[in-house]
């Protein structure tokens, strides 16, 4: 969106794209000349602040992380033996110290992602469609749906832990009054723990996705709907042929961001279930944090992170490819 608006502004100022590569010899006195002289560098200068941060806080640590993953690494011990790829091979060797835990954690992350992402795509879209209509109190409801998102994970986690407690929680207490006379183990047994974790995450983060959708919906030109209506399209057909295609770039963004966020789930499970029952709800990030920050086995933890990162990279690539295919078809 910012690209568009800056292009518009440039057009309004009477500049053209050719202005960036002007013919030689145009005076430096003219406005065109100034932009031209510095044009080649300008985009990089604009990018520079971000690029510096990106390199210092993302690229450098990522490379350093590979280095760490090849050692038996504890930053406080003077001796950090080189172990080659064995931190990685260990993860693929059944019966080792970490393999079982790691793949169980990856499975937990996978389960959570598979169940939370569809809900976080669909529910916020429905909310956004509702909030896009005009009705009295619309702004109020927009705020209501967005509000949970501003809470920290600690608040959300503690809140739901008490609400969902199997024996003294509010939820079971109300269910009891409604005639469900058994204590549902929301936080201590499967599949209930997953239902709780997915449910609270949807409640917590749907506002963010809804706002993105809402912005996307408002970008779709009303004329398209009018034209569709003139052609005799009903509400459902309008949704299929106008709304969804119009939302495609937004959908790609929401899908990618939601998958990554779900795959990085940590706080909810850490606070609400503590990984129970057993380690069934201990997610990959939870295990990585434990391994690296509590056991100080940073080499293994780094190796786990890279395996997880490769999975996420592949999924993101599939995502982009899928949407591009739809684009060209």
């Amino acid at each position: 969106m910012s690209v568009e608006s800056s292009a518009e502004r440039a057009a309004a100022a009477g500049e053209t794209l050719q202005g960036f590569q002007p013919p030689e010899g145009q005076g430096r006195s003219g406005v065109h000349g100034r932009v031209a002289r510095h044009g080649a560098l300008t985009p990089y200068l604009f990018l520079a602040p971000f690029l510096v941060l990106f390199c210092v806080f993302i690229v450098a640590p990522a490379i350093y992380g590979i280095w760490i993953s090849l050692h038996d690494y504890d930053f406080l011990l003077p001796h950090k033996p080189w172990v080659g790829l064995s931190n990685y091979t260990e993860l693929f060797t059944p019966g080792g110290r970490d393999a079982t835990d790691f793949w169980r954690a990856m499975k937990a992350t996978g389960i959570f992602t598979v169940f939370s992402v569809p809900l976080l795509l669909v529910v916020p879209l429905l909310v956004a469609l509702l909030l896009n209509r005009s009705f009295p109190g619309r702004t109020f409801f927009r705020a209501v749906f967005f509000t949970p998102y501003v809470l920290g994970v600690a608040v959300v986690g503690l809140l739901w832990r008490y609400l969902l407690d199997p024996n003294i929680g509010l939820v079971n207490s109300y269910l009891d009054q409604l005639g469900v006379h058994r204590n549902i183990p929301w936080t201590t047994d499967l599949p209930w723990a997953w239902i709780s974790l997915v449910g609270m995450t949807v409640w917590w983060t749907l506002g963010f996705n809804a706002i993105i959708y809402l912005a996307g919906l408002q970008d779709i030109s009303p004329e398209l709907y009018e034209a569709a209506e003139v052609d005799g399209a009903g509400k459902w057909q309008q949704f299929l042929h106008v709304t969804l295609p119009g939302l495609r770039p937004v959908l790609l963004f929401v899908l990618t961001v939601t998958i990554l966020a779900s795959a990085n789930m940590f706080g909810q499970a850490f606070l609400v279930t503590k990984g129970a029952p057993g380690n069934a709800t201990r997610t990959a990030i939870m295990l990585i944090a434990e391994t690296g920050m509590r056991s100080f086995r940073m080499g293994v933890a780094a190796a786990m992170s890279y395996v997880l990162a490769i999975f996420l990279l592949l999924i993101s690539l599939l995502n982009f490819r899928f949407f591009r295919m739809r684009d060209t078809s």
């Binding site: 350093y64 930053f75 950090k80 033996p81 080189w82 172990v83 080659g84 790829l85 064995s86």
Partner: peptide, 28 residues
């Protein structure tokens, strides 16, 4: 443990000892 990849091999692959020095420096 290092059968699969030796430290020297890794450095040769990734641009040599300069990078190693840099990385080691990051370690404080």
């Amino acid at each position: 443990r290092s059968l699969f990849l030796s430290r020297r091999h890794f450095l040769a692959l990734t641009g040599g000892a300069g990078a190693a020095a840099l990385l080691a420096a990051c370690g404080g």
